[in-house]
Computed example of a mutant assay.
Amino acid sequence: MQGHTMKSAVTLCAAAAFAAVMATASAAPAASPPSTAQRPVLVDCTWQPQEHPTDFMLACGDGNSRLSSLHWSVWGPESAVATGINTVNDCKPYCAAGRFHDYPVVVRLDNPRPWKGHSPLRQYTVMNLIYTHDSPEGSGRTVSYPLWS
């Protein structure tokens, strides 16, 4: 008999907890997902949409340039801004024997456009890198890249 009373108590507590959760959930307004039409994405090398990536490969073919340790301060409908590190292979005497060097950088994404074949998503189409200290040999202080679409 005591086992039956214990089962009833547990069942009653579970039902009360479920009712409390359901009442709270039904009273709270449903959270609306962020509008992808307002928040563009960054398309990576494998054609996956990314938001706030911490790493991003710039040289998809050979991996000789990548962004890492990205910290996004802005991810808006018109632009996105992050600070991070651009790791670049110096390819001396050739890329397979080259050394990787880290360069602090500010990353700015701009010019969002509809992502072809992925409506309603929009993607950033331009990436600007602003080197805050040294820059890779042959690069200026600011480098602009068109992004693939």
Rank of each mutant, 00 (worst) to 15 (best):
D44R: 03
F56W: 06
T46L: 04
S35D: 13
P40C: 05
V43P: 00
G61L: 03
A59W: 06
T46S: 13
G61R: 08
V43E: 08
L42V: 00
F56N: 03
T54Y: 13
V43T: 08
Q50P: 00
L42P: 00
D44N: 06
C45R: 04
Q50F: 04
Q48I: 00
F56G: 02
P33F: 12
T46F: 04
G61H: 07
Q38Y: 08
C60A: 11
S35A: 12
A59H: 10
W47N: 15
P33K: 12
A59T: 10
F56E: 04
Q48A: 11
T36K: 11
H52K: 13
M57T: 11
G61S: 15
S32Y: 04
H52N: 13
V41P: 00
Q50V: 03
D55C: 05
G61A: 13
Q48E: 13
V41S: 03
P33R: 12
M57Y: 04
T46Q: 14
S35K: 08
V41Q: 02
V43M: 10
C60R: 10
T54N: 13
P40L: 01
C60F: 03
T36W: 10
T46E: 14
P33V: 08
P49K: 05
D55T: 08
T54Q: 14
S32L: 08
S35G: 09
D44C: 03
C60N: 13
H52C: 09
F56T: 02
Q48L: 06
W47T: 15
T54I: 07
P53A: 08
C60T: 05
Q50H: 10
P40G: 04
T54D: 15
D55M: 06
P33Q: 14
P53W: 03
P53T: 03
T46I: 07
A37M: 12
P33E: 15
Q48N: 13
S35W: 05
D55N: 14
A37Q: 10
W47A: 15
Q48R: 11
A59L: 07
R39I: 05
H52G: 11
T54C: 06
Q48K: 11
D55Q: 14
C45H: 03
C45S: 09
H52S: 13
P40H: 02
C45A: 13
E51H: 06
P40D: 10
R39S: 10
Q38D: 13
V43K: 05
D55I: 01
P34N: 09
D44P: 00
G61F: 01
D44G: 02
Q50E: 14
L42R: 01
P34M: 09
C45Y: 01
P34G: 07
C45P: 02
F56P: 00
L58Q: 05
T54S: 15
S35H: 07
E51Y: 06
R39A: 12
C45T: 04
C45E: 07
C60D: 15
Q48S: 12
V41A: 05
P49S: 14
D55Y: 05
H52F: 11
R39M: 11
T36V: 15
L42F: 02
H52W: 11
Q38T: 10
P53E: 09
T36E: 15
P40N: 08
P33L: 13
M57S: 12
F56L: 01
P34I: 04
P33H: 14
Q50I: 03
L42I: 00
D55H: 09
